[in-house]
Amino acid sequence: AVSDRLIGRKGVVMEAISPQNSALVKVDGETWRATSGTVLDVGEEVSVKAIEGVKLVVEKLE
């Protein structure tokens, strides 16, 4: 799938994300809905860990 190429890519949080709420991230110039197990604020850099349906699963870039 096209989205599989995004695993391992870096992105930027466009809307705050919490474990209860998905929000938008920008990866390679494209906007995607994403979820995370932690709270992520706007502007934080993230890494794509997986794809669940049409959502990216991201975590904060260390």
Rank of each mutant, 00 (worst) to 15 (best):
A1F: 12
A1T: 10
V2I: 13
D4R: 08
D4M: 09
D4G: 08
L6C: 06
I7L: 08
I7E: 04
G8Y: 02
G8T: 01
G8D: 05
G8N: 06
G8C: 08
R9I: 07
R9G: 06
R9S: 08
R9N: 07
K10F: 11
K10T: 13
K10A: 06
K10M: 06
K10Q: 09
K10L: 11
G11V: 02
V12D: 03
V12A: 04
V12I: 12
V13Q: 00
V13I: 08
M14S: 05
M14T: 08
E15M: 10
E15D: 06
E15C: 14
E15F: 08
A16C: 13
A16Y: 13
A16P: 10
I17Y: 13
I17F: 13
I17P: 13
I17N: 14
P19Q: 10
P19N: 11
Q20T: 13
N21T: 10
N21M: 10
N21R: 11
N21I: 08
S22Q: 09
S22T: 12
S22K: 05
S22V: 12
A23G: 15
A23D: 02
A23C: 14
L24E: 04
L24I: 10
K26R: 12
K26V: 12
K26F: 13
V27E: 03
V27N: 01
V27H: 03
D28T: 01
D28A: 07
G29P: 03
G29N: 07
G29A: 04
E30W: 07
E30Y: 10
T31Y: 14
T31M: 14
W32C: 03
W32Q: 01
W32N: 02
W32Y: 15
R33K: 10
R33S: 12
A34I: 04
A34W: 01
A34K: 01
A34N: 03
T35Y: 09
T35A: 06
S36H: 04
G37T: 14
G37Y: 13
G37R: 10
G37H: 14
T38C: 13
T38G: 10
T38Y: 10
T38S: 12
L40E: 01
L40R: 00
L40T: 01
D41Q: 14
D41A: 14
V42A: 07
G43S: 03
E44I: 07
E44F: 06
V46Y: 01
V46E: 02
V46I: 11
S47L: 15
S47Q: 14
S47E: 14
S47R: 15
V48M: 01
V48Q: 00
V48N: 02
V48H: 01
V48A: 00
K49P: 02
A50D: 07
I51H: 04
I51S: 02
I51W: 06
E52I: 12
E52V: 11
G53L: 02
G53D: 05
G53W: 03
K55S: 13
K55R: 12
K55G: 09
L56E: 03
L56I: 08
L56D: 02
V57P: 01
V57T: 04
V57N: 04
V57W: 08
V58A: 00
V58F: 01
E59P: 00
E59K: 05
K60G: 04
K60I: 06
K60T: 06
K60S: 07
L61C: 09
L61K: 05
E62Y: 12
